[in-house]
Simulated scan of single mutants.
Amino acid sequence: MEQKYLINCDHVSKAFETPEGVFQVIEDLNIKVRENEFLVLFGPGQCGKSTILNTIAGFEPVTGGEITVNGEKVTKPGPERGVVFQTTALFPWLKVMGNVEYGPRMRGVPKKERRARAQHYIELVGLQGFENSYPIKLSGGMKQRVGIARAYCNEPLVMLMDEPFGHLDAQTRYLMQEELTRIRQLEKRTVIFVTNNIEEAVYLADRILVLRNCPTSVKAEYEIDLPRPRSYTDPEFLRLRREIDSVVDHTL
């Protein structure tokens, strides 16, 4: 059976105008993402990972090439692409329920339907009982759970996750990696996940793309065929970690 690619970045480039001149962030980037694949974009800080995600999300226009999602050219944001940000970006004036149901509410989904959908995803991320809590009352990990539930509530084809656990303490980060693995087993989605944490990349990914420093493009690719749940101390996990680390551009 022919492999279906849901996302296609075809010779994509992105440059920004700065006072010092043109700054090329992405150059001739080619990525194909399979349906229901968990793809990790891995590379050093400031190499262009978030810019790639922003172009796929439609937040930033490309300056060369083309991006398509489900066969449609990306020209602006759309509900078929859910985004989970590094900073939680929750609305502080809305309770958990209000944040999670926000997308369907803006799209005119009837209240009864969107509330039922939001409740489903609140329970999926383990926040039942916190529906009426404001974000200020939540821990960092709980806020990211709300962000994940909010993205899922729009029922997108694609989840774009920009270092969502980067600001969490180590213990909470490990817990959220386990939770994301659990959630994904229950709610299949195509996911592009950005991280500069090599253990996180190997723990979560079906496939890892190692990116070059700016201007970025794909330097190496790894299929991660380890059984789940994965162990950080598994010999093959450690071997992959060392191998991937050896090809990363460590200096900017």
Rank of each mutant, 00 (worst) to 15 (best):
N30W: 07
I31L: 14
K32C: 12
V33Y: 09
V33Q: 04
R34D: 11
N36L: 04
N36W: 11
F38H: 03
F38T: 06
L39T: 09
L41K: 12
F42H: 14
P44Q: 12
P44Y: 11
P44A: 15
P44N: 12
G45E: 06
G45S: 15
Q46D: 08
C47G: 09
C47S: 14
G48C: 06
K49G: 11
K49C: 13
S50H: 07
S50Y: 07
T51G: 09
L53E: 12
L53S: 11
N54D: 12
N54R: 13
N54W: 02
N54E: 10
A57Q: 02
G58L: 05
F59E: 01
F59Y: 09
E60F: 13
E60S: 05
E60W: 12
E60H: 04
V62S: 11
V62R: 14
T63Y: 04
T63P: 02
G64D: 08
G65N: 01
G65V: 05
G65M: 11
T68V: 10
V69A: 07
N70L: 03
N70Y: 09
G71M: 04
K73A: 14
K73S: 04
V74D: 01
V74F: 00
V74G: 01
T75I: 15
T75N: 08
K76V: 08
P77R: 00
P77V: 03
P77M: 02
G78H: 01
G78N: 04
G78T: 00
G78P: 03
P79Y: 08
R81Y: 09
G82V: 02
V83M: 11
Q86C: 10
Q86L: 12
T88R: 07
T88P: 08
T88M: 08
T88L: 11
A89G: 00
L90N: 02
L90A: 08
P92H: 06
W93D: 02
W93C: 02
W93R: 03
L94K: 15
K95H: 02
M97E: 05
M97C: 00
G98I: 02
N99M: 06
N99G: 09
V100R: 12
E101N: 04
G103N: 06
G103D: 11
P104S: 12
